[in-house]
């Protein structure tokens, strides 16, 4: 599929421009020629069945695995080839499918850690870090409703709370682009909608562009401005919720060609 030309207006560069991204593991082409744009302030959903290459895409975008070929530009600047830490400094944050936090630190310290990193204080050997950036950390925790647990170690939090902490951590440096890998995976249905609503509101307020993957279609159709569909490593469709819902290729990918139980009985 070629690059969607609709967004490429000369006036505003897309936040993230992905072109011809490729990755093979041995003989398996996990990601094939994937190109898309993430517009400024957009909430873009990347969906696809298990094994479609979503996580591989994400891992290439934030530098965790090297791409075989292609290009990823953040407001015009090439990102491919940089390490994850470098890409983060350039303004691409991410959350993980299975939350990654620092279990031995308190919730507030987890957030303060981002601020220390952002302000390049990591090689400061002598001043105390115990209450460093506490006020700013509490502001961020207030946004996700976690101030009440600010001084509990992350290691003892429930999974839903960890997701909230991760969100606060990801917003800590106000990235230009936020990659969210299944932001609501492993949560109860009601918590899911609540968390995604919160995330959508926060990134909207801060003007952050978001690319997220998700298996829960209620969340995808409810929150994404636009949806792109990945199947066997290649993009097969792009559009808004209505278009994707009725796209014959997408239906075939998700449901197969055979009949579904319910249909057979009708």
């Amino acid at each position: 599929m070629s690059a969607p030309s609709t967004i490429e207006r000369a006036t505003d560069l897309p936040s993230l421009a992905v072109r011809n991204l490729n990755k093979a593991f041995g003989g398996v082409q996990a990601v094939r020629d994937v190109s898309f744009d993430l517009a400024e302030g957009e909430l873009l959903a990347l969906i696809g069945p298990n094994g479609a290459g979503k996580s591989t895409c994400f891992n290439m975008l934030n530098g965790q695995i090297p791409a075989d070929s292609g290009s990823v530009r953040l407001a015009g600047e090439e990102l491919l080839g940089y390490a994850p830490a470098e890409i983060w400094r350039r303004g691409v944050g991410r959350t993980f499918q299975i939350t990654a936090t620092f279990p031995s630190m308190t919730v507030a310290e987890n957030v303060a850690m981002v601020l220390m990193s952002q302000q390049r204080e990591l090689f400061s050997f002598f001043r105390s870090a115990t209450h460093r950036h506490r006020d700013r950390a509490m502001e961020l925790l207030d946004l996700v409703g976690m101030t009440g647990q600010a001084d509990r170690p992350c290691g003892v939090l429930s999974y839903g709370d960890l997701k909230r902490v991760e969100l606060a951590v990801a917003l800590g440096n106000t990235p230009r682009v936020l990659l969210m890998d299944e932001p609501t995976a492993g949560m109860a249905p009601r918590e899911r909608l609540e968390l995604m609503g919160l995330a959508a509101r926060l990134v909207g307020d801060l003007g952050i562009s978001v690319l997220f993957t998700e298996h829960d279609m209620d969340i995808v159709f409810g929150h994404a401005d636009r949806i792109i569909v990945l199947s066997r490593g290649a993009l097969i469709a792009e559009g808004n919720a209505e278009q994707i819902r009725n796209d014959p290729l997408v239906l075939k990918t998700y449901l197969g060609e055979g009949q579904i139980y319910g249909q057979a009985e009708d």
Binding site: N62, Q64, A83, P84, A85, E86, W88, R89, G93, R94, F96, A100, T101, F102, P103, S104, M105, M113, V114, S117, Q118, L122, V169, G172, N173
Partner: peptide, 12 residues
Amino acid sequence: DSTLRAAAIGID
């Protein structure tokens, strides 16, 4: 604690 998270918040 977490190499994944550390790298994702800019720690070398």
